[in-house]
Design a protein around this nucleic acid. Structure first.
Lengths: 156, 156
DNA sequence: ACAAGACTCATACTTTAGGGTGATTTTGCT
DNA sequence: AGCAAAATCACCCTAAAGTATGAGTCTTGT
């Protein structure tokens, strides 16, 4: 009970003790040194500064931390989940499994090297695949291929 | 500049002023009343208490609230139909008119040369624009840029 | 009026993409 | 087993894309 009280108000108690000690110290000091005519102001100033600091410290210990909630809205993109490939169109292009895979990764913006790494084959293989994809989709560039594939609903 | 400084440190300045006023007040008081033999202790005690309070007040004004970030996920579903650009997202990217134009043409699968011809500017200009687009969208390749732009609903 | 940003273009250089050809190995099907 | 398509990879070469830097012009807002 008592211990509990002590631990809870340790800061307050410490403050009291400090106050007493400081005042005694000051008293001792005044007997020995700075009792000059208008030293009272200096004295008061010193006390003021010290106890201002003490008050700040006390408050920092006693006050509950101010919290300011900062709300950030983060957009999460949900791809159209109900995507279903147009298998008819897909078949008519004559794309093979691997070629379709390459096309899908292309659509994600991966480089040929990235795709090669991801599919565990060489860069040259991806080049071959992508060339065939372009042929079969009748386009020249990967960006065209992606655009066309999306329009034909070959990929999401 | 000066006003800014003043408003920012208003509390500190107020503290200084209060300190001065209080000390003057105490000095005035000491001349008229409580100059008793051992009044210096009372005086110091009073000053201590007052300035402890002042310190606490000061701290309460100066202490910055701890910010607590709360991230709210806002789900966005993409549907290519009835497309309307997310102007907020668009603004936050800082894309200029021309950069957006380039991005849109990129999405159609056009080469830089095609875009240059269509916009009646040089190939180098398109390169500059596209580089800026990549920077602002934080991507490396045009395919990534197109993919990201679509997810952010910057383009159709 | 002037500062900032946007727009334009150039030059030089590096990296990635794409085309052409050929070769070997797998796989699926009859 | 045998054939055709698919898949893998290599080499060479060209085209396109991308990076970096600098610089001049044009708008626009304060």
């Amino acid at each position: 009970m008592l211990l509990n009280f002590i631990s809870q108000y340790r800061s307050v108690i410490l403050y009291g003790v400090l106050l007493a000690v400081l005042l005694l110290l000051l008293r001792w000091l005044e007997w020995h040194f700075i009792i000059i005519d208008n030293s009272v102001e200096l004295y008061a100033g010193g006390v003021a500064v010290v106890f201002t600091a003490l008050g700040m410290w006390l408050y920092s210990k006693l006050s509950k931390p101010k919290t300011e909630t900062l709300i950030i809205e983060k957009k999460v993109i949900i791809d159209p989940q109900n995507f279903e490939a147009d298998n008819e169109a897909l078949a008519s292009t004559g794309l093979s499994k691997r070629e379709l895979e390459v096309l899908q990764l292309m659509a994600k913006g991966l480089s040929n090297q990235d795709i090669a790494d991801q599919m565990f084959v060489s860069l040259n293989t991806i080049k071959t695949h992508s060339s065939k994809v372009f042929e079969k989709l009748d386009v020249q560039r990967r960006t065209q291929a992606v655009d066309k594939a999306k329009k034909l609903r070959l990929i999401a």
